[in-house]
Design a protein around this nucleic acid. Structure first.
Lengths: 243, 243
DNA sequence: CGCCAGGTTGATTTCGCTCAAGCAATGTGG
DNA sequence: CCACATTGCTTGAGCGAAATCAACCTGGCG
């Protein structure tokens, strides 16, 4: 006991801790009640699959709490981590809207609570309440801008810079405490997954971590990272910008 | 004369050659008439900017005919080509929906006809006709899937494979004629822009082109390319897949 | 004519991958 | 409880692909 305290059952959508961050928050009380009745809730443990790439996409998953990673199978058959999802995210909405089957897999990385909403329900809500569609549109647009930003960065930046950037992003979400200017955080990912996130091999990840330690940028101990100089991370990203 | 025949003035939206490919095609006649009255049309010559990265985004541009490239300024200040737009595309909708200013620049690569629609008009249409929003949502989702596909490919595939892929994509759009199995097309891009599209340096582009010639995959003469074996291009992309 | 931008080519270097070994933590079956 | 696989991580050695640096060539264009 004690290891499951965050996975308490979500009673209903109204008390969902992530409701404010979801697209559904524009719905009326009556519409929300519709979802609430139609949804099914499940608890996932680390490693559990929420859905698999290639599965038919029969609805969306509403990510209430926990931690989830999105994976894609590459040409060699490896399920590489492509991004993280956050509570409030609606998993699988792209596949649902664009086509038939899931383009990627979703896997719980920590104990998570996730609800499922059938496509028919989503469809009827989209038809009934135009603001829901606009809300999803805004979301898709934001995701799109992020994706294009990432294309540019992967093409332009060095491995060091990309790793520094990743650390900064993770810091925003997972920094535990800050003291004398340094930041401590627990990486939610294995080295392999860290590597995949910035498109490199695990060996190169190890070496890059070692470089960062040697350069005094951060200290790594397992998944605990102490970033000694946040500014150094920023310096890594910007190759002597002049603007 | 003869070099401008494709840039005839677009009289109105109803006779727009790209209407079927736009999101606006779901609008009623009355709504389309609204756009038609509110829009302004402009002709652009190669090199002309449609909008600049950083500009406030005061509406969308409706790409009727011609050819347009989307550029992004990288960390070094170079305006690198990130993708091509096609007639029927609505330029700048991401920036309009997501935030304030343009995240990239649009530039005419060939003589082009492009209309401008003010954000207020777009907004009122989105509010009035829910299917328009859903249409844009589908579009954004498709773009998003493309972008993520590209992230994966850039990380996974070799330069040869990425160039082969680019040639195949350009072939779909710009293949002029096919004869004895070979395909001839006119590349719409400079070497520099080709290089930027697959995230490499111009020098590497030159060498890759030379490799393709030496390997008998294609013959390059200026911007004219004769792809001798289309199958060879496909072979380049799939590194002995077994599935 | 000289200039300049775009393109090609060559020489060299750098970065990240591959291959390979070793190590610590964890699990498993006898 | 020990012998042993297994898995994730690190480290080293060598290689190869692409970047970088540099020269040169070409075709406009003032």
């Amino acid at each position: 006991m004690g290891s499951r305290r965050k996975t308490g059952v979500v009673k209903n959508c109204f008390s969902c801790p992530a409701l404010d961050r979801t697209e559904w928050c524009v719905l009326s009380q009556a519409e929300l009640r519709n979802i609430d009745k139609a949804k099914s809730t499940r608890e996932y443990l680390p490693g559990d699959a929420i859905y698999h790439q290639g599965d038919p996409c029969s609805g969306v998953h509403c990510f209430a709490s926990g931690m989830v990673g999105i994976r894609k199978v590459d040409a060699d058959g490896n399920a590489i981590l492509v991004r993280l999802a956050y509570p409030g995210d609606t998993l699988g909405y792209r596949s649902l809207l664009a086509g038939e089957e899931h383009r990627d897999s979703a896997e719980a990385l920590k104990p998570s609570t996730i609800c499922f909403i059938d496509r028919a329900v989503v469809r009827s809500l989209l038809d009934a309440n135009p603001s829901l569609g606009l809300r999803f549109l805004t979301r898709a647009t934001k995701d799109l801008i992020d994706a294009e930003e990432r294309i540019l960065q992967n093409a332009t930046l060095s491995v060091r810079a990309r790793f520094a950037h990743l650390l900064l992003v993770l810091k925003e979400r997972y920094a535990t405490n800050t003291e004398d200017g340094s930041v401590v955080l627990e990486l939610p990912l294995s080295r392999q997954d860290l590597a995949a996130m910035i498109g490199i091999r695990p060996e190169t990840m190890s070496r890059t971590i070692r470089q960062f330690e040697d350069d005094g940028i951060a200290r790594f101990s397992g998944r605990i990272v102490q970033v000694t100089h946040v500014d150094s991370l920023l310096d890594e990203i910007e190759p002597e910008n002049y603007v």
